[in-house]
């Protein structure tokens, strides 16, 4: 308890600033996901039509992800300058592997019988996607988005170093000023943000599964929300 008092008082004193940076952090994530989801899902759907293209594209998204983020920022700065543009660009790149891969696997795991029945009852290719493949793939895609968000929360924090703002700002400042309270409190807030988003998106994924009629083990929150909806 003794140990935590200075952290608590730091948190209380700087609450407004921490809150503002958290909001900024979430905004960066939202913008990045807003761009990454349509791109990733479209690519995932398109490559589901061709297996060979699919493995190449997924391999490429995997390669993109191995590039260290600081190095990637470094590569992007000469082109996009500093601030949020290079960071958002990098976040979109990093999120492609989980989104593209999960969209692709989600769609390819739909049983052939299901798509064929859709075809047999007169669905066009678009309608098959809309009524059969995408709804069935949605929970898997959601799991990919969840993965992507976790990665993005972390990389966005590093993005503060090149001026994108967010909670990373206070962490870098803390390291520079050797302010332990600042470091500990901000990293805890950042980690809680990641955990909350992970949990929240996990619940959304479970709700989608329940909506699709799957039998799953439900988290408490999922159970509560589901019993209200259903």
């Amino acid at each position: 308890m003794q140990l935590s008092v200075p952290y608590v008082s730091f948190f209380v004193e700087r609450f407004d600033e921490i809150l503002a940076l958290t909001v900024e952090h979430v905004e960066i994530i939202a913008v990045a996901m807003g761009l990454a989801i349509p791109i990733g899902v479209t690519v995932g759907v398109l490559i589901s039509f061709n297996e060979r293209v699919a493995s190449t594209v997924i391999w490429l998204t995997g390669i993109m992800m191995t590039i260290p983020s600081i190095a990637l920022f470094g590569l992007l700065i000469p082109v996009l300058g500093i601030g949020s543009p290079p960071v958002i660009f990098a976040l979109v790149m990093y999120s492609q592997l989980p989104i593209v891969r999960n969209t692709y696997t989600g769609i390819s795991q739909v049983a052939d019988a299901q798509t064929e029945v859709g075809e047999g009852m007169g669905m066009t290719r678009k309608q098959r996607l809309r009524y059969v493949q995408l709804p069935i793939a949605l929970p898997v895609i959601m799991a990919g988005l969840r993965n992507a968000v976790i990665i993005i929360v972390g990389v966005a924090a590093i993005g503060a170093f090149i001026g994108a703002g967010g909670l990373g700002d206070l962490i870098f400042k803390g390291i520079r000023l050797q302010n332990m309270n600042m470091i500990v409190v901000t990293t805890v807030v950042l980690s809680l943000l990641a955990l909350t988003l992970d949990y929240g998106l996990g619940v959304v994924e479970q709700l989608l599964r329940l909506h699709n009629g799957e039998e799953i083990e439900r988290a408490k929150l999922t159970h509560a929300i589901w019993s209200v909806i259903a």
Binding site: V117, G118, N212, G213
Partner: peptide, 22 residues
């Protein structure tokens, strides 16, 4: 093709139902 199929009912073994729909 599409019109033709919509005018013909199609039933296959039970896997043919869409499990994700009611």
């Amino acid at each position: 093709k599409i019109d033709l199929r919509r005018n013909i009912g199609y039933v296959i073994q039970e896997i043919g139902l869409f499990d994700h729909m009611t």
